[in-house]
Nucleic acid binder design. Structure first.
Lengths: 115, 115
DNA sequence: AGTAAAAACAACAAATAAGTTATAGAAAAA
DNA sequence: TTTTTCTATAACTTATTTGTTGTTTTTACT
């Protein structure tokens, strides 16, 4: 496997890494309805101040959100709603997986009663 | 933020977590061209045996790949090519980000010469 | 049976990351 | 100016996770 390919794949996995923490996804979700400042994000997510700040920095560095100071507070907003497309794709896939498992469960139950 | 929402978001972030490691994405990529056994994956990715085995377990548990023993070796294959849709979405997004940065760089250069 | 090959598993070391506490900085209000 | 409010940063602790080494298990072959 070529060095350049690995590097490119590394960028992709780094992108996914940003979305691989519940807290960060929660922060993104709280921003889905529009621009919010840190305190509002804290209240909506229930996360601590320093924690939210740190996650927001990660999200900003990765280009997920935009930072906009206004007076004392700082407002953040989603840069590109592609994130939600990604999440929806994953949600659909998870639903399918669950349905398949449910079906298997039903088959097992049927087998049980037929024995 | 509701408990059930957090739980659902946790499932989503767990899904992304699987894709957040270069090694695992490399393994998935090596399987893009078709079913392969562990040794073939090792050769294509350059990863160690135990390491590949562990990543394959993670991928299998998450429902990304299917396991199929054949004689002494075990073949793995992609279950759902949705992963590549996800990766392509991310790649497109990363390209756009890079283009924007390049444009900014050009603007900076132009500014430099005009001063 | 005994050996060889392939993959999984267990245990360990090292690296990475998350959350907390405490502190510092910056802007508005008193 | 002093104080208050909001956010960022640093230092630290703890928890996860990765990769490696060594061992075990399973299957095929002699």
């Amino acid at each position: 496997m070529e060095k350049s390919s690995v590097s490119a794949l590394g960028q992709v996995s780094d992108y996914f890494k940003v979305l691989s923490e519940v807290s960060r996804v929660m922060v993104l979700c709280s921003l889905k309805s529009g621009s919010k400042n840190v305190k509002e994000i804290m209240e909506e997510t229930g996360l601590g101040q320093a924690n939210v700040s740190k996650h927001l920095k990660v999200l900003k560095d990765a280009g997920f959100v935009d930072r906009q100071p206004e007076g004392v507070s700082v407002y953040y907003e989603i840069v590109d709603p592609i994130i939600f497309d990604l999440c929806n794709l994953v949600c659909d896939r998870l639903s399918v997986q669950l349905e398949e498992k449910a079906k298997q469960s039903e088959e097992l139950k049927a087998l049980h009663y037929s024995l």
